[in-house]
Write a protein that binds this DNA or RNA. Structure first.
Lengths: 218, 218
DNA sequence: CCTACCGATCGGTAGG
DNA sequence: CCTACCGATCGGTAGG
């Protein structure tokens, strides 16, 4: 991190200016949501800058708190990361296992899975999975272990769909490597996809499915 | 980063113990290579822990220097990152454009490209490309701009091979998206491939090609 | 390239 | 949840 050489001395603590406006009308039940606010703000910041480059002060500021206050809700910064990643995987699993329940034909099932995954991977407000993918290293070993079970369920869904595609003659191979290649190609989109670009998620899902399975014949 | 609460006070600077052995016999021309040593050590550390989680002290220690000495070779930590990434791309381009020069048939050309890319992406001692991929965010805007030209040449090679595959009837689509999906699937291997695992790079290249193009018919 | 050091920042805490 | 603060660490530098 770059250090900024500011010439002006820091004003003495007593006279430091407090933020001008802090418009917070506490509604009942609002308190309970502060934790969720922190998780969402942290997710966005982690996704944009990475875990290490995001300070607890950044997170506090993003939700209108003072620098020490996130520690009222979380013991450590690492616990915030864990919450982000767990919440993301839980939401992702919901959407993903929901697709399996629909009992679609293989190609349509694959398309629905891809589309659902693109949503949580790339769409506005869904920052959890990118954080999981790109700040995995920042999780402690213990916290990684807590998450592996969820990740395994995720992989199992994709593996099953890949197997069905092979059985339907739509893919050449259905090994774990095949699953890793498909998911890798999609997950890597988080590095190049621009939310403000011309390519929407629907079109992206269509073209991705066509690439892997070939265009639909009619 | 976790803070370790060490009870013992830091010994006063005067009496601090210096590393026991520092076996350095300076050969002529050795001096010139110290910069390269730093770049290689930094690449490995950046790949393992990420740019932000690696300190200049870590890098110095890895090459047997004292904490301030890397700044004799580089002005800033950011400059070390830039050197890592530039060196990696240059080496990658060499290998990659070399494949194009061989004028192989499409399937073989693709295989050679994949195999060459796996080498610099996953093999021992090649940490540059993973750093490029996963610490891209840590580069300043200016430094990213310096690299884009190299990255574009890289992409152009893959785009051309993808086009040849389509023309040969081995791929359904040859759009930029097709290139991004293929490269994404491969680049994402850096997150899951284990150098000490059972899957070697040759087998991985074979199976990857088979997945995308279908097994060879005979 | 080392010694000795600085200023800034950061995660975290005590007490209210 | 804020105030006020601490200890540690970190990038970087002056001078040799």
């Amino acid at each position: 991190m770059q250090q900024k050489r500011i010439d002006r001395r820091r004003p003495p603590a007593r006279t430091r200016i407090r933020p001008a406006v802090r418009p917070r009308v506490r509604v009942a039940g609002d308190e309970a949501n502060r934790r969720g606010d922190i998780v969402r703000a942290a997710a966005r910041l982690f996704r944009e800058r990475g875990f290490d480059a995001t300070t607890v002060r950044d997170i506090a500021k993003a939700v209108g708190m003072r620098s020490g206050s996130p520690f009222y809700h979380f013991e450590t910064k690492q616990d915030i990361l864990l919450a982000v990643v767990e919440e993301g995987l839980a939401a992702g699993l919901d959407a993903t296992e929901g697709v399996l329940a629909e009992r679609l034909p293989p190609r349509e099932k694959f398309h629905a899975l891809v589309r659902a995954h693109l949503e949580i991977l790339l769409d506005e407000g869904h920052d959890f999975i990118p954080v999981l993918l790109y700040d995995w290293r920042s999780l402690t070993r213990e916290n990684r272990a807590k998450i592996v079970a969820l990740k395994d369920r995720y992989d199992a869904v994709w593996q099953q769909v890949v197997r069905e595609l092979k059985r339907a003659g739509l893919l050449h191979i259905d090994s774990p490597l095949a699953r890793l290649l498909v998911l890798g190609a999609i997950n890597f989109m988080a590095t190049w996809y621009r939310r403000d670009g011309a390519l929407g998620l629907d079109a992206l899902a269509d073209q991705t499915v066509d690439f892997f399975l070939g265009p639909t014949k009619r």
